[in-house]
Design a protein around this nucleic acid. Structure first.
Length: 425
DNA sequence: GGAAGCTACTCAACTGTCAT
DNA sequence: ATGACAGTTGAGTAGCTTCC
């Protein structure tokens, strides 16, 4: 049955819980802690985080530059009263597009807006003519979120750098491996064929290198480098050296590691060619057991990229978490992967009022993924008013995790069941 | 003649939908 | 992703009518 109280067409800019929350956040901003120039630089950098696109960034920069620099001083009020028409003219887009982009920026929490009855933007001044408030585009939320957004930009940049480095190193390793195969004369056709097949297999598993995850690339690189070293008759690396390259864990985690005990797996003597080949087969078999396991783990990793990773302790799917915590949707969060959910943790904590310290401890104790689930559960319970102190609730969960008594899956499935009951009734 | 009230119109903003 | 269009809102304003 249709709700007769609902207007068929909502009039004016919609006020969602998230927008209301953003307004509250804007009011808590400490003006004077960030300059206009800093915000302009940040606004230009935000495109790399995926929060906004280029046009939205352009509009945001235009808004920041519209407010006088003094508006960001301690006694200032960074509120913009420019019309959509003027903004559209300045950024070379239509008025309708500007209106929509402002809504998007409002949703993303990069601006807030206070509309007047007739949508006109105007300042409210005190007796001395100073602007104390106004109906317009409020930039205070940028000041409030500056540290968080700046950190996000830095993080994304460093991840990109690491990903680029992994890509370059993988391409180099693949080139080296193929070159080593082409120039290696001292091995039999059979051995070269087998190693060549393994190089091809690694290359196929990685697929388009530019689209592969940096973790997958690093593992593939390590495998290729190992194959080259075997072709070059280099002695196996010491455990310490491997550890410094963050490789040890790769072998330990598959649980099938066999340490290479033969220092020179490929004998060179012509007289002993036959037996050496046999030895090579054996040593390749033995020493490559761990590497073969590594290839298997590469395949597994590839599957994990497309499918949600299961929690080590509780088999919870991302969809279960989303069903369990409709508050995520309420706040405009729609994680498509575990990484998305982990990235949303600072924002969720902000919405729930969970302190930085509580969040850090949860991540340290549970790991990013499980902590993200715990924070989502806390946010949902806070939204349902089941808990009055979300920070305390999260700390209690962290303590239970430390004691090995945290069963997040139960909470997730319980909340999901409650949500589906509420939907059906 | 001036004040008050009514009406029609303009303006600036929003959203939904459709086409490109 | 973007622009265009239709339909909506309420404040502001101009012009007209009515009343004192």
């Amino acid at each position: 049955m249709r709700d007769t109280h609902m207007h068929p067409r909502p009039i004016g800019r919609r006020i969602t819980p998230q927008r209301a929350q953003n307004r509250r956040l804007a009011q808590s901003a400490e003006i004077g802690t960030v300059t206009r120039a800093q915000l302009a630089v940040l606004a230009q950098s935000l495109t790399c985080t995926g929060l906004i696109n280029g046009t939205e960034s352009h509009l945001l920069v235009a808004l920041i530059n519209t407010a006088p620099a003094e508006a960001f001083d301690k006694s200032g009020r960074p509120i913009v009263f420019k019309s959509n028409q003027q903004l559209a003219f300045e950024i070379g887009r239509s008025v309708g597009r500007v209106s929509r982009m402002l809504s998007r920026l409002f949703d993303t929490g990069l601006i807030t807006m206070q509309d007047s009855g007739n949508y006109k933007r105007y300042p409210i001044r005190n007796g001395e003519g100073e602007i104390t408030d106004g109906c317009g585009i409020d930039l205070r939320i940028l000041v409030a979120r500056y540290a968080e957004l700046d950190e996000l930009v830095r993080q994304v940049r460093s991840e990109k750098k690491a990903a680029d480095a992994a890509l370059r190193r993988y391409r180099g390793a693949l080139r080296n491996a193929r070159h080593a195969l082409a120039t290696a004369a001292e091995h039999s056709e059979y051995i070269l064929g087998r190693i060549g097949a393994r190089v091809d297999r690694v290359s196929n598993l990685v697929g388009v290198a530019g689209k592969a995850s940096s973790r997958l690339l690093r593992r593939a690189t390590a495998l290729l480098e190992w194959l080259v070293e075997r072709l070059m008759h280099l002695p196996p690396r010491s455990a310490e050296a491997q550890e410094t390259e963050n490789m040890t864990c790769l072998r330990v985690e598959n649980g099938m590691h066999r340490q290479i005990t033969t220092p020179h797996p490929f004998a060179a003597s012509n007289e002993e060619r036959r037996s050496a080949d046999a030895e090579q087969h054996r040593s390749l078999k033995a020493s490559s057991a761990s590497k073969w396991a590594l290839e298997k783990s590469l395949r597994r990793r590839r599957r994990e990229i497309n499918q949600p990773r299961h929690l080590p302790q509780a088999m919870v799917a991302l969809q279960d978490v989303i069903r369990a915590a409709p508050a995520l949707k309420t706040y405009g969060l729609a994680p498509k992967s575990w990484a998305d959910l982990a990235r949303a943790v600072p924002l969720m904590c902000r919405f729930a009022g969970i302190s930085e310290d509580a969040r850090r401890r949860a991540v340290e104790q549970m790991g990013e993924q499980q902590a993200a689930v715990a924070v989502a559960v806390t946010l949902e319970k806070y939204e349902r008013q089941d808990v009055s102190s979300p920070g305390g609730y999260l700390r209690a969960m962290t303590d239970r995790a430390r004691a090995g008594e945290l069963y997040l899956a139960r909470s997730v499935f319980g909340l999901a069941a409650r949500s589906s009951m509420e939907v059906t009734h």
